[in-house]
Design a protein around this nucleic acid. Structure first.
Ligand SMILES: [Zn+2]
Ligand SMILES: [Zn+2]
Ligand SMILES: [Zn+2]
Length: 717
DNA sequence: GACTTCCTGCCACCGCTG
DNA sequence: CAGCGGTGGCAGGAAGTC
């Protein structure tokens, strides 16, 4: 502490005594403050933002992040409580976060420094961005950052006063104004361990802001097939070896930029059954956020899709609410802070809950690029800025989560990081964000021309004057359209956490995983907005903004984002987000042809092929008044066969009713005789349908004179 | 252009709850 | 047993792929 005294002199009234002005400087305060903040972060105290990177959650304080990162500063002026970064790897971000909270780069593998620097540039963390010079020396060393190599002085660096001596001088080398690289360690130096922490996170809305849709789904830089070590995998048996057959489909990209040539992880062709070609996206299965219904906000602009009633004529914009005017911090104030926090304490980031969940990558309906981050200028980066949909996640309101440390003990295959815009950190960010989070209700960087109508914060009613972007609304917002003159009132329903509703997050994973054991709980979904337009209600996916007439359709659709449920093929390794997709896929394994043309008797594998046949061969419209085909109950798979399908046991594929050709009863309970193993190879029609001959697959139902087959399903059923 | 896959309204079915 | 919510199959158009 420094104490000083000066005598107050002139300017005083003649009769006044001279007084001493005391100045006291607590030189340790800044360091202690930062340490305290870091400890709070470690305990999740007062954290008001969750940053999702890959499959990991990092709890932090918005003030701290915004003070140390120009990116976060600008982001938090519009974002909610949860943001997702798609352009940084979790492993790297963990280090960045550690730096932000400790002012040190501690035990960072040298092979991460490149990414660290680039990420620092992206995030506007000047200190990290300036790590380049010391990195040159560091990289010359073999694999690790050693104290000696870090002892490089860069007088041109931040120009800050030298940090105070570290608490652990043996492990750190301090260089004035330079990055502090401490305590190098080898790849095998530290074991990951897992600790249980309890996250109490009930206060915020867990809004997820997809602030940077950087990569089109199909061109997303690879997520390695096997999760990297920095993705804790409490359940290693999960889907990591599965092929994620998301229905993702790259939306039509308005951007002309080619997709980034990022490597993708494609399965070997040998693993792909030719019959599975429709499962177009063979995404690896990264660990994904489990929970279904976050409040997800996207800052990408895109039109509401699908519903013809939600036309472009109406545009919705949540009007920005000026919040604060302080300029982005240069983060210099942090770089010279001294802190003793260099311990091994694990990051408190919460592992996104379920590692065997699959990150939904699809964003079929969204196309436009995010502009929250710096706009890429290179084609690669521009394409990267187009579309991805990260899985919707939410921090559990209260959940016990296994958290693994980020210290990697084994060889971490370095993922290509492709989304580094070339702009320097200091370049102004061109914001195209037109919306602000209703809850946080601010956007000082809103573009000009957005004329606010009115915002009634207390009533959580916001009137909009355009309709293009509603994605930043908090979930549960009800958008009342056509209130008048193309204005829209968005009503945010009051959250009622005490009404007995149960978030999926709260459902114990073990029971939730087992459909048989899962208790039917009233589940609170935060997966949509409601747009009421002309008296009709449309449900809009908070992630991709597709609109739905039926909420059940949206629920079904939302799984492509959340991957809360996975539908693995029982014949191969593919996984689907919709049960129906899996069923149709498995039909290809079995080769069953359920659609029969009544004109010629020919059978087809699906409706489309059958319809094409009828149109081309018979020149008739299969969807016309008369029934031109017959749908037989599914025998090769254990699926629900509706009564109307099996209602007629006519054996003759003729007639014009809904009768079915095959005299087979729907297999209602094939599970009572599970097969020992799923077929090792894709099965063909001939493999399966050897009527009454292949006992391994079918058994004739003795109780019925008809040839009721019991299809022995794979064990995985 | 043929074929495949995706998508979504619709609705039957199922299990749980009161 | 009725009501309700979840599930998923189906139709048929749309979009993507080859
Ligand atoms: Zn969606
Ligand atoms: Zn399969
Ligand atoms: Zn025919």
């Amino acid at each position: 502490m420094e104490l000083g005294a000066m005598t107050e002199a002139g300017g005083k009234a003649p009769g006044m005594e001279t007084r001493k002005l005391i100045t006291a400087t607590d030189n340790q305060y800044s360091g202690m403050l930062l340490k305290a903040l870091d400890e709070q972060r470690g305990h999740g105290l007062f954290c008001d933002v969750t940053v999702i990177v890959e499959d990991r959650k990092f709890r932090a304080h918005r003030n701290v992040l915004s003070a140390s990162s120009t990116y976060f500063h600008q982001l938090f002026s519009v974002a909610g409580q949860v943001v997702e970064l798609n352009f940084i790897r979790a492993e790297v971000f963990a280090e960045i976060l550690n730096y932000i909270y400790t002012s040190k780069i501690v035990r960072v593998r040298s092979d991460l420094l490149d990414e660290l620097i680039k990420s620092g540039e992206l995030l506007g963390v000047k200190f990290l961005a300036d790590l380049g010079a010391p990195l040159q020396q560091v990289k010359s060393m073999s694999g690790t950052v050693t104290p000696s190599t870090s002892e490089q002085s860069d007088p041109d660096a931040n120009g800050l006063e030298a940090p105070k001596p570290p608490v652990h001088p043996g492990s750190q080398i301090l260089v004035s104004g330079n990055p502090v690289i401490t305590e190098s360690f080898s790849l095998c130096g530290v074991d990951s361990d897992a600790t249980k922490i309890t996250i109490s996170d009930s206060d915020d809305d867990d809004d997820v802001i997809f602030c940077s849709e950087l990569v089109p789904p199909k061109d997303r830089p690879l997520e390695t097939k096997v999760p990297t070590q920095n993705q804790p995998c409490p359940n290693p048996v999960g889907a990591s070896e599965q092929t994620n057959c998301s229905n993702s489909r790259s939306p039509p990209q308005s951007s002309a930029a080619p997709p980034p040539p990022a490597p993708r992880l494609d399965l070997p062709s040998a693993q792909t059954n030719p019959a599975d070609s429709h499962a177009s996206l063979e995404q690896p299965v990264p660990s994904a956020p489990k929970t279904v219904a976050p409040n997800v906000l996207r800052l990408n602009s895109a039109q509401i899709r699908a519903s013809p009633h939600i036309g472009s004529a109406h545009e919705i914009e949540v009007l920005p609410i000026p919040e604060e005017n302080h300029q982005p911090s240069t983060n210099d104030s942090l770089t010279d802070m001294d802190t003793t926090v260099i311990d091994e304490e694990e990051e408190e980031e919460e592992d996104v809950e379920d590692d065997d969940d699959i990150l939904g990558l699809s964003s079929p309906g969204s196309a436009s690029s995010s502009s929250l981050v710096q706009q890429p200028t290179t084609p690669k980066a521009a394409a990267a800025a187009t579309t991805t949909v990260a899985a919707a996640t939410t921090a559990a309101a209260t959940a016990t989560i296994t958290v693994a440390t980020t210290t990697d003990c084994t060889d971490v295959e370095k993922k290509p990081v492709v989304n580094f815009p070339p702009q320097p950190v200091s370049q102004p960010v061109e914001f195209k964000i037109k919306i602000s989070d209703v809850v946080s209700g601010s956007n000082k960087d809103a573009p000009a021309g957005v004329a606010p109508k009115h915002v009634t914060e207390g009533q959580k009613t916001i009137t909009l004057d355009t309709a293009t972007e509603i994605e930043s609304l908090s979930t549960g917002c009800k958008v009342y359209a056509n209130i008048g003159e193309d204005t829209y009132d968005i009503v945010i329903p009051v959250k009622n956490e005490a009404d007995g509703e149960v978030r999926l997050d709260d459902v114990p994973r073990t029971s939730a995983d087992d459909p048989a054991n899962r208790k039917r709980l009233k589940v609170k979904h935060d997966d949509h907005y409601e747009l009421i337009m002309d008296g009709k209600v449309y449900y809009i996916c908070i992630v991709c903004r597709r609109s739905y007439v039926c909420l059940t359709s949206l629920r079904r659709h939302f799984n492509v984002h959340s991957w809360e449920k996975k539908y693995p093929c029982r014949y191969c390794e593919k996984v689907f987000p919709l049960a129906e997709y899996r069923t149709k896929h498995e039909i290809h394994h079995t080769g069953e042809r359920r659609y029969q043309c009544l004109a010629c008797g020919q059978c087809f594998i699906n409706y489309q092929v059958m319809a094409t046949h009828i149109r081309s061969v018979h020149s008739q419209d299969p969807s016309g008044e008369s029934k031109l085909y017959r749908l037989h109950p599914c025998r090769s798979l254990q699926i629900r066969n509706y009564a109307y399908i099996s209602g007629n046991s006519s054996n003759i594929p003729m007639g014009n009713d809904n009768a079915l050709t095959y005299p087979v009863a729907p297999v209602k309970d094939a599970s009572q005789e599970p097969a020992p193993n799923p077929p090792a190879k894709p099965m063909t029609w001939d493999d399966i349908f050897v009527p009454q001959g292949n006992e391994s697959l079918f058994k004739q139902n003795p109780s019925d004179g008809s040839t009721e087959f019991e299809f022995v399903i794979p064990e995985s059923y």
